[in-house]
Structures are given as C-alpha cells and as structure tokens.
C-alpha cells in the first residue's frame, strides 16, 4: 500500500484550529456550549475520516467543511425538536398592536448593523488566520492576554515566565499581526 502522502499531526489540532473553528461556529449558533460541542465533534469526525483527506485543501479548510456539515445537522436537530422550521416569538399581546405606534415607524437598529456584523465576522476570521501563523506558545499567551483578558501575573505564573518576557512576546505578536493583517483593515 502506498504510504500516506499527507501526514496529519492531530495532536496539534486543538492548539492550532480550535479557536478558529470555535469562532466560526459561535457566530452561527450563538451559543458557546453548542459551539464547543460542535468543534469537539468536528475533531472526532476529522480523526475518523483522516484517510479521506487528500491534501488538496489546507487542514483548516477541510476541518471547516466538516464543521459546516455539523452546523447544518445542528440546525436540523433543533428544528425537528420544534417541529417547524421557523418559530416567531411574539411577546406583545394582540391588544398592543392596535392603533398607530411610533415605535413601528422607526428603523430597526439591528438591520442597520447587518453589514457591520458581516464585516466583523470576516475580520474575526482574518485575525484568527493570522494568529494561526504565530508560533503556538506565542499565540497562546497573546490570546490569553488580549482575548481572555487575563492578568499579566496569572499568565506569567502559568507559563513560568517573567513580566518582561511576557511583554516581549506580546510585542512580537502584535508586530507580526500588524504585518499579517491586510492594510485595508487599518484604514479608517
């Protein structure tokens, strides 16, 4: 039998792709617990289907395609529980709807933000791709400090480094991210 051309190191999966997949999932299912479960299931499915990975796409793209399936399945599952595809919540009673209400005439703020939400989603994924290019330990420390907003002291203790070490790591990460992120993002 021909040996596998594309060697996949599954032990690196969680460190490299978990946050990217998690961000992808959470913007679509809006629930962190479900998103975490979906990412976990994606890794397990990926592991089982590893033989089918031809190496035509990057590992990340391949994992995302699995995650997409999982998200669709998740929607199907929740909708079948409800017994219908769409549920409209109506908190106001019929008597509230009588007459002319000023509130109905103003623009919906959420729909105004639809475009910027979409932009933020794209930005989030662009940042995640750049974070992936950082050395694993550097990315881990940077995420802890910037995204999880942990205290300098806590991170230093956890990793056994000094505060000045930490700031050097943060500085390097920030410089690399600035170079990686497209200039378009830095325009106002």
């Amino acid at each position: 039998m021909e040996p596998l051309k594309h060697k996949i190191d599954t032990t690196q999966w969680v460190d490299r792709y978990a946050d990217y997949l998690f961000n992808y999932a959470i913007t679509r299912v809006n629930d962190s617990y479900t998103a975490e479960e979906l990412v976990q299931e994606t890794f397990v499915s990926g592991l089982k289907a590893m033989k089918n990975f031809k190496g035509e796409a990057t590992e990340r793209t391949w994992l995302i395609s699995i995650l997409k399936r999982k998200i669709i399945d998740q929607y199907r599952k929740t909708n079948s529980k409800k017994g219908q595809a769409e549920v409209r919540m109506d908190f106001s009673s019929a008597s509230d709807q009588e007459g002319d209400w000023l509130e109905e005439k103003i623009e919906d703020r959420n729909s105004l933000n639809a475009e910027s939400n979409f932009e933020n989603k794209e930005l989030g994924l662009a940042i995640e791709i750049c974070l992936e290019q950082l050395p694993v330990k550097q990315a881990e420390i940077f995420k802890k400090k910037t995204i999880l907003e942990q205290e300098t002291e806590t991170i230093c203790k956890e990793h056994g480094i000094t505060a000045s070490n930490l700031w050097v790591i943060i500085h390097r990460a920030r410089v690399q991210l600035m170079q990686c992120l497209n200039d378009d993002w830095f325009k106002n």
Binding site: T10, T11, W13, V14, D15, A18, D19, F22, N23, I26, S32, E36, V39, Q40, F43, V44, L47, N120, L123, G124, I127, E128, K143, K144, T146, I147, L148, E158, R174, L177, M178, L181, W185, F186
Partner: peptide
C-alpha cells in the same frame, strides 16, 4: 489593532476546555 480586536468580538477557548478536547481526541 486593539480596536480591530474589540470590534471582531473574538472568543477563545480556555486552557481547561482545550485540555478536555485534547483528552477526548
């Protein structure tokens, strides 16, 4: 860059969550 990170509303899994995933994997 800080503003971009804020507007991207990024999430990150905690070390415990990642450890759990690694274990299961």
């Amino acid at each position: 860059l800080t503003q971009l990170f804020k507007s991207a509303n990024l999430y990150s899994l905690t070390a415990q969550q990642k450890a759990k995933m690694k274990e299961q994997l």
